[in-house]
Amino acid sequence: MSSVVRLSLVSHAATDALRLVRFPIDESLNEVGRRECRKAARMAAARIVTAPELRTIQTAEALGLLGATTDSALADVDHGSWRGLSMQDLPPDDVATWLSDPTFAGHGGESIVDVIERVRTWLDRVADTETETIAVTHPAVVRAAVIVTLDAPPDAFWRMDIAPLCITRLHHRGAWTLRSTSFGPEPH
């Protein structure tokens, strides 16, 4: 019988871009995000990784997840020319297409399908580690991991809300299984 690989995906804490519904740049946590991290329970794992963006690194540090390494496979969606803009700044037809067509990359960045495939490759690597991992990343990466785990269609991506500091636990024993999703890191 194969060993169980445990993976906890933690969505980064709040930023001003989240609050303003703006496509992110490499912004830091806002005061609400820092305060929520201080209130959260501590977690531990043999392996800790973060996405390369400042907000994920700061979230890991604020949660006491020291010694993390960064992994570019956990990066947020590349929004291309939309970085830093709000949805109101964009042509409504482009926004509607982006929200309904997971292959859309008209902004010059990644499509949702691209993100799902990037995360699928990363999950395959994690499955081979045979160790417990905590990954601090982005809501889009968590959504993509759930899509892969449930073998759901890419258009299901937008039917999930992943809040700041949401934790999604996956287990792998031959295949990934969604174990639980909860708000805020809990004792592990």
Rank of each mutant, 00 (worst) to 15 (best):
R35T: 08
W82S: 09
V21M: 12
H12N: 12
W82F: 12
P185D: 00
T131E: 15
R22Q: 15
A13E: 06
M43H: 01
T131S: 10
M87P: 05
M43G: 08
T131H: 10
H107G: 08
Q88A: 15
V21F: 14
N30R: 11
R83P: 08
I57K: 15
P187E: 01
L178V: 00
D155K: 05
A140V: 12
G184D: 03
E27I: 10
D161H: 13
A62W: 03
R19D: 02
S11E: 10
S100L: 02
P185Q: 00
L74E: 12
G184Q: 00
V10G: 11
R47S: 10
R143D: 03
T70M: 15
V4Y: 02
D76H: 13
L63H: 13
V146Q: 11
A140W: 04
L29Y: 10
L65Y: 13
P185G: 02
L123F: 08
S28Q: 00
I116W: 00
D151G: 12
D101K: 00
F23N: 06
W98D: 12
E132P: 05
T121V: 10
P91D: 15
S111Q: 04
R120L: 02
D114K: 05
R38L: 10
D76G: 14
A60H: 13
D161Q: 14
K39N: 04
A156S: 04
D26V: 00
A41M: 03
L7H: 02
D26L: 03
T59L: 11
R55I: 03
W98K: 03
F104I: 07
M1C: 13
T168V: 15
E130G: 14
V146I: 15
R34D: 03
C166N: 11
S28V: 07
I134N: 08
T129H: 04
H107V: 06
I57V: 14
E61L: 14
A144Q: 05
L54F: 00
R159D: 08
